[in-house]
Design a protein around this nucleic acid. Structure first.
Lengths: 209, 209
DNA sequence: TGTACATCAGTGAACGCGCGTTCACTGATGTAC
DNA sequence: TGTACATCAGTGAACGCGCGTTCACTGATGTAC
């Protein structure tokens, strides 16, 4: 409590996250975070190599937290609930959402677990097991579901779409993903394999055939 | 050419856009833009009230340009082509894409025309006229299509999804929107009206019943 | 067509500021014997 | 259990920088008569 803080790294992340919430994804400083924790600015450098490193660590923490929320929702109520968790998070914490996926904040060296992408992936696998989704339609389906949910979440977070009641957002998420799953169920096989897309997270190849 | 520039406002927008492209959506300055145009920093203040105002004007210009691209594609090849234009733009110009929709850059006093949201709206109306989409499913459909396309575009722009060949992105956009339209065609009426969402652009109410 | 003058769109110096980062330092902690 | 000492995690002063913005100014443009 006195000279040594004990967990300054985490405290700085907390302060930075709070500042992002107050001033927006870009308008915060390492100095202000240090001040808020009650420590000199230079102390931060024992925990993070630079402001950028702090930002990257914050992004990692925040995305992982989203992944956990999604996983919890999914394990109880399935894929659509995971999507709702994504959208609700964006609605509740728009500035942090904006920071989470900003290119400058991404740390290319860290594999996030559980990553939102992977949670969707796993839930789609479960739908195939349950016979709701055919193996053919399963191919690349993550890159239909993820963009849809991500788009709704960020349009809401950035204020381009507004919703009167947060509860309405849930119903809309359900419609969005429900429509996509219905469409997948009626999908005919393409003449060529679906194009191959990659998630940066795993750099795992999805799609192809 | 000498003392009076002639069209300094536009030139500053061009320079700022170029800087965004080079350094990212947030890492550019009014001073650098002025220097690049060959003018003193204070000259900018005869055209924009502040750096923020310049940024807002840039966002307006860029979103309108996207709307025009979409409209051109739509008038030739319909809704899905408009979506592909959206995604291709994000792939070609990721940093500018990021700036375009950033909350700090949005000017609440300007109505953009044609706004991407409105282009989608108009194309969905056309699908109803052509009997492809039922009036029931038409309700609120913009808020399924727009998020889907926007999510794919921004995940690509932010580098969270990667594509080997830009042409693959087109095929994936087609699958995404095709699946959504198929799903809409098989949609059963909901027990309650769909939730009401608003676009900030028009603040027009869409949905309800 | 020429002159007077208001207006417009630049200049350039200066301001104060907050920032990220460095450096030599010091106090607290933990380990070896 | 006590002491010596290496290591760790802070301090605080200082740095240089680029930034947005202001201000008094001046040169160019356009209009009235």
């Amino acid at each position: 409590m006195a000279y040594h803080h004990g967990d300054l790294g985490t405290a700085l992340l907390d302060a930075a996250e709070e500042l992002v919430r107050e001033h927006g994804a870009a308008n915060w400083s390492l100095r202000e975070a240090s001040t808020r924790v009650g420590v000199s600015p230079s102390a931060a450098y024992h925990h993070f190599a630079s402001r950028d490193a702090l930002m990257q660590a914050l992004s990692v923490r925040v995305v992982a937290r989203l992944g956990e929320r999604m996983q919890a929702a999914a394990s109880e109520h399935g894929l659509i609930a995971a999507g709702s968790a994504y959208v609700r998070w964006a609605l509740e914490d728009p500035a942090v959402t904006a920071l989470a996926f900003t290119p400058e904040a991404r740390d290319p060296d860290v594999v996030i677990s559980p990553h939102p992408h992977d949670v969707i992936e796993a839930e789609l696998d479960r739908l195939v097991e349950d016979g709701v989704l055919s193996p053919q339609s399963r191919v690349g389906a993550t890159f239909l579901i993820w963009p849809a949910v991500h788009g709704l979440a960020t349009l809401l977070a950035d204020g381009l779409i507004k919703v009167e009641d947060p509860h309405d957002a849930d119903r809309h998420t359900e419609r969005l993903l429900g429509t996509l799953l219905t469409g997948l169920a009626h999908e005919s096989a393409p003449p060529n394999p679906w194009p191959t897309l990659h998630s940066v997270q795993t750099d795992r190849t999805v799609g192809g055939r």
